[in-house]
């Protein structure tokens, strides 16, 4: 377990109010442990014991295209229409200790603005993306 985390300001990801169920994620950094590539760890800066495994969405599904609701665009500081910068798309991984399987949450990706480093978990309402897609085929 990580005991303390220090990060340069430009690397800090700010998620206003944190993630649902994890308010500690209001300020976090992406760690890239070599042995976990392509998995990244979204590490809370306020609670060193809270770290969330995520993976770039394209590593799970090259055809994954999350959509943004107007409130998502506002929260991420994006224009209501017109071109937007390419967002960092992260998918949360869940390991089930009892069943020994992994799953990922395609219903609620964490999207991060590449310049402002503001992030938000954006729900894919009305889509068929599952909140727990089992990664059995891997």
């Amino acid at each position: 377990m990580i005991e303390s985390v220090e990060a340069p300001p430009e690397s800090v990801i700010t998620i206003p109010n944190g993630l649902p169920g994890l308010p500690q994620m209001e300020r976090s950094v992406l760690l890239r442990p070599e042995d976990l590539d392509p998995i990244l760890l979204l590490q809370s800066l306020s609670d060193a014991s809270v770290s969330l495994p995520v993976v770039p969405a394209r590593a799970i599904s090259p055809d994954y295209h999350p959509t943004l609701a107007p409130e998502d665009r506002r929260a991420l500081g994006l224009p209501e229409d017109g071109p937007s910068p390419e967002l960092l798309e992260l998918v949360v991984l869940v390991l089930d200790s009892q069943e020994g399987v992994a799953a990922c949450n395609l219903f609620a990706p964490i999207l991060v603005h590449p310049l402002t480093r503001i992030g938000r978990q954006c729900l894919q309402l009305g889509s068929d993306y599952p909140s727990l897609l089992r990664l059995e085929g891997l």
Binding site: P20, G21, L52, P53, V94, S131, L138
Partner: peptide, 21 residues
């Protein structure tokens, strides 16, 4: 959604499973 996020938090026991994944 809150439960999924909380379940995903990494504990010590999971590190080897993550490396395998």
């Amino acid at each position: 959604l809150e439960e999924i996020n909380r379940r995903a938090v990494v504990g010590d026991w999971r590190t080897s499973s993550l490396a395998a994944l």
